[in-house]
Design a protein around this nucleic acid. Structure first.
Lengths: 193, 193
DNA sequence: CCTACCGATCGGTAGG
DNA sequence: CCTACCGATCGGTAGG
């Protein structure tokens, strides 16, 4: 692992623990056993550490959803795949994903705007799947936009509790989250608000 | 509105915009048209501003869930009420709730520990409802703990997009979120993972 | 509510 | 990767 990656990894742990604003370059250097100015031989600013992790996770998520939407499948299967893919990216980079979810809003303004655009695009790809399911007659939602936002937040919430060495695999988590969208209440039960 | 409340309100807006760590007492004072040291006639520390908003929202949520669990009702109705109550508290204090959801982890350590305890208690009250529903035979979940965590995150995500002057009322949002838990996928649809 | 000010700490640079 | 250091800014206090 290169020195730069070591720094990135340590920075991730620190950003998760105290937030991006709470992380100091001196504190980061200390954890690595070097002096703060030495960090700047490997990166050009503190902001860079946040930018790298956010765009890294974003790229993985984007790649995954585009693959799903490129395939000719029905919406239910696409939804499964999209959820599975999303959960996989997050669980395989659990610390980075925690920072991605919780600290992206502290990106410098230019990168923040770009990030928001990418996030909105990603959300719209998810929404496309839900809309396909409605057209196919297999899904029904009052408001697709709210549903997609809520679904993504539900998926992202795994960064708060998932442990890679726990008893649940990424696929098992994905399965549960998929079922959460549609089968919590048994079919026999009458639902009137 | 008292001076202290004016300061709290302005602090909320600023914490939402730049985060608790990003908010400075000088910046806050400037928005209020006074000098930074003057703030300390109304509060004793910057931390106090965060503590107050977090415990304020927490108390409202606790009061509400205990009411629901005190009533003799079936789980489906309780779940509706709990969701409705949660959504109501958040929508009626939308900026404070945003800070509550996103900034509680920057509470000073003593208050943070207390907060986590209260949050866990709240989550367990929600879980009780889900477990009641399972016992009644109207609800089914693979893992109740994960479901309750996911559900609460889904509910909390409204702080990201809800606008009090938008076209959706608090009750309409609650209704949609309730349906999200259990009726996204039509009953006729075969679900096999 | 103000002026004057404190010690501490920040991200980052110069130069080697 | 280091020492030496910069200007800027932080939360907060003293005293009125």
């Amino acid at each position: 692992m290169s020195r730069k990656q070591e720094i990135q990894n340590e920075a991730l742990l620190m950003m998760k623990e105290v937030g991006f604003a709470g992380m100091t370059m001196r504190g980061l250097a200390k954890k690595l056993g070097i002096e703060a100015p030495s960090l700047y031989n490997h990166l050009k600013s503190k902001d860079d550490l946040l930018i790298e992790v956010c765009s890294n996770i974003a790229l993985q998520l984007e790649t995954q959803i585009l693959e799903v939407n490129d395939i000719y499948f029905n919406a239910i299967d696409k939804l499964k795949m999209a959820i599975q893919g999303h959960v996989n990216v997050l669980t395989q980079n659990i610390t980075a994903s925690y920072v991605f979810v919780n600290e992206w809003r502290f990106l410098p303004s230019n990168e923040k705007e770009l990030f928001i655009q990418r996030r909105d695009k990603y959300e719209s790809e998810f929404r496309r799947i839900l809309e396909l399911g409605i057209n196919e007659g297999n899904l029904q939602f009052q408001d697709v936009k709210i549903t997609s936002l809520t679904l993504l937040s539900a998926l992202n919430s795994i960064v708060d509790w998932f442990h890679p060495d726990g008893d649940l695999s990424s696929d098992e988590v994905a399965k549960q989250l998929f079922q959460f969208v549609g089968s919590g209440i048994k079919n026999e039960t009458e639902i009137h608000w």
